[in-house]
Amino acid sequence: MSQKRLRRTFLEAIHSIKDYIDQHPLEIKTIEELIHRTHSQIGINLLHQGFRQLYGARIKEYEIKKRLEAAALLLQQDEMTMQEITTLCGYSSQSSFVRAFKDVHGITPGQWRNQHVPLLFQ
């Protein structure tokens, strides 16, 4: 296989894995599962290296960011409790969820909900 074709195959695999994360942000998965679910033909080390070069973040960092972006949307819908969202996002404690959410969004989930849920009675 030529180097150019090999490079294209790896790039396609990395893009495919990113797309899968984007489409399934609340799904908790290992790197091996990502490779398997996207039918990618790429080694773990090359995937880590290529993903970071292309997207400026490690895969797990990117997954967490996407998961917490999904959490923000759930908070806006105001249909689930904070504990339900915490669990759905894969956190075992609400305090770790709040800390991670604040790292990504700059405010706590409660503050986010208060700012983004329309008031019914004013």
Rank of each mutant, 00 (worst) to 15 (best):
I28E: 11
E27K: 15
E84D: 14
E33Y: 03
H39A: 11
I17G: 04
I35C: 01
P118H: 06
R99K: 15
G106W: 05
Y91T: 03
Q122G: 04
H48F: 10
Q49F: 08
Q111F: 02
K18Y: 12
E79V: 05
K66W: 00
P109L: 04
N114L: 08
F51R: 10
T86Y: 05
I44V: 10
T30G: 01
T9A: 13
A13F: 04
E32W: 05
P118S: 05
A72W: 06
D22S: 12
I17F: 10
Q115C: 03
Q41S: 13
L6S: 11
Q53A: 10
K65Y: 10
Q76G: 14
R5G: 11
L6F: 11
Y91F: 15
G106I: 03
T30I: 03
K102V: 02
Q76D: 09
R67E: 13
A70V: 01
E33N: 08
M82F: 14
E33S: 09
K66E: 00
G90V: 02
I85N: 09
H24N: 15
I14Q: 00
T81K: 10
Q23D: 15
K29S: 11
L11C: 06
K66L: 02
D78H: 14
M82E: 10
H39K: 13
K65N: 07
R52W: 09
L120P: 01
S92W: 02
A100R: 04
Q77M: 11
M80C: 06
Q77C: 04
K102I: 01
I59G: 10
M1R: 07
Y20T: 00
K18E: 13
K29F: 00
R37E: 14
S96K: 08
I107V: 15
T38D: 01
T38Y: 02
I59R: 06
F121Y: 12
R37D: 14
T108S: 15
L73S: 13
L120T: 08
P118I: 00
G43L: 11
T86M: 08
G90L: 03
S93K: 07
G56R: 04
Q3G: 08
M82D: 10
G43V: 03
K65M: 06
M1T: 09
K18H: 13
I14T: 15
R99Q: 12
I31M: 12
D103V: 00
K18S: 12
D103S: 06
L120C: 03
F121G: 02
A13Q: 09
T38C: 08
F97P: 00
C89K: 01
F51Y: 14
T38M: 07
N45Y: 10
G90H: 09
K60Q: 15
R8D: 13
E61P: 00
E12T: 07
Q115V: 00
R52Y: 14
L34F: 14
V117Q: 00
S93L: 02
S93N: 07
L68P: 01
N45V: 07
M1S: 13
L120D: 12
G56I: 13
G110A: 08
Y91P: 03
R99C: 03
L46Q: 11
K60G: 06
S96I: 03
E61V: 00
F97I: 05
N45E: 09
T81I: 08
E12A: 12
G50Y: 15
Q53G: 03
F121Q: 13
S16M: 03
L6V: 05
F10N: 09
E84T: 06
